[in-house]
Design a binder for these strands. Structure first.
Lengths: 204, 204
DNA sequence: CCTCGTAGGAGTACGGCGTACTCTTACGGA
DNA sequence: TCCGTAAGAGTACGCCGTACTCCTACGAGG
């Protein structure tokens, strides 16, 4: 057969990721990625059906870096899950701009599914099955997605905390007070603290 | 002063919401909203700085419908919070297409802040303060945002469950099994089940 | 070694988007 | 009645994703 492909999906994805890291998610376009690769815009369509598939490749690239091997089985299951959750959070935190992409394409990413499978493995070994296991996984996933977005797209912590602290404070007494206090709580402690609540609930 | 405004922000927002309900979020544009109102595209900019502000108005309109009055103080605080969470979930569920908008503009919506203030009120009456209260609010908010997105934008429940059930099942044994089982768990039970975990953790 | 089919890649073009800018028009106070 | 002001229309620009056409470089079969 003629003309072997000169580009792998991984190269394409990492070019897109470079664009995102440099110019933000808003800077991502078929044109900008093509320029990054030194080829014409339309040539990208030899490798990808549409922009959505390109985005999925980026998500796969990032989620592919997380180690899905469940941590040592001698540890308590709560801690094993905490490690898995933390690894995914860290991988996304390395490229915060892709947060909206991970949310949109999570369920179509093989790497993401591998991670879920791993979490399910730990849950199963801990004795979860049936409805309880479904609810546990969904609860963890929901918290993970929501917490990551709170962390990277908005207050309480981060810039937004300041905005809230400037509200008409007679109508939002508690919000103002909490926002002020939140500035002293690190994103790490917020994440693991919330997760600990969930895990404690799972254990009861 | 001349030419009183012929449109209120609420009218503008509800026109935009009509477009979204009819044509989906992808159908929302300055042009489509202007057409809905029978006016020129650029006239919208007399009422709104840019598209982002229009989106924020839509979020405010929807979140404005939730009753933020905390339920009766005689009830246990877990139940009071569950009611508040449920009300917000229901309001969003009435217009599922706006989910991405609520996530993006949540922290700039007055109605959203009112809701948070109300949750903080319940938490405070339940004895939470300082770091614990920050973490409780963030945990609840994170779960709420994540769970709503899971519910409306992807698997496990919904169409995606089927997609997962068709995976190479030797590599994703647990995912396939869980997805199959998840079809028998209603979205309602998933949401309240996960929330119950969080609330149980808060109570310990 | 040559040739030919195939797939890679370039170029052009279209419709849609957000929005900056200019011009016209309808109103309310003096 | 007239005038200042803001409402609204219209036009245009530079992006976007992508459909389509054309040219070109390659590798296998003779």
């Amino acid at each position: 057969m003629p003309r072997p492909r000169s580009l792998s999906h991984a190269q394409l994805a990492s070019a897109a990721l470079s664009v995102i890291d440099r110019d933000g998610l808003a800077g991502l376009s078929m044109r900008s990625v093509a320029k990054e690769l030194g080829m014409s815009t339309m040539a990208l369509y030899r490798y990808v059906d549409d922009r959505e598939e390109l985005e999925r490749l980026v998500v796969d690239l990032v989620l592919g870096t997380v180690d899905t091997e469940p941590p040592g089985p001698e540890a308590p299951w709560q801690q094993r899950i905490e490690v898995l959750m933390g690894r995914l959070r860290d991988a996304v935190a390395a490229h915060p701009e892709i947060v909206p992409l991970t949310v949109a394409h999570r369920h179509r990413s093989l790497a993401g599914l591998r991670w879920s499978e791993s979490v399910l493995g730990v849950l199963t070994e801990a004795g979860f099955d049936g409805d309880r296991r479904v609810i546990a996984l969904r609860g963890l996933l929901g918290y993970l997605i929501g917490a990551i977005q709170l962390e990277h797209l908005g207050p309480l912590s981060g810039d937004g905390t300041l905005a809230i602290a400037e509200l008409p404070s007679d109508a939002f007494t508690l919000m103002a007070e909490t926002a002020r206090h939140a500035r002293k709580v690190s994103a790490d402690r917020e994440f693991t603290g919330g997760l600990a609540l969930l895990l404690r609930g799972l254990g009861a």
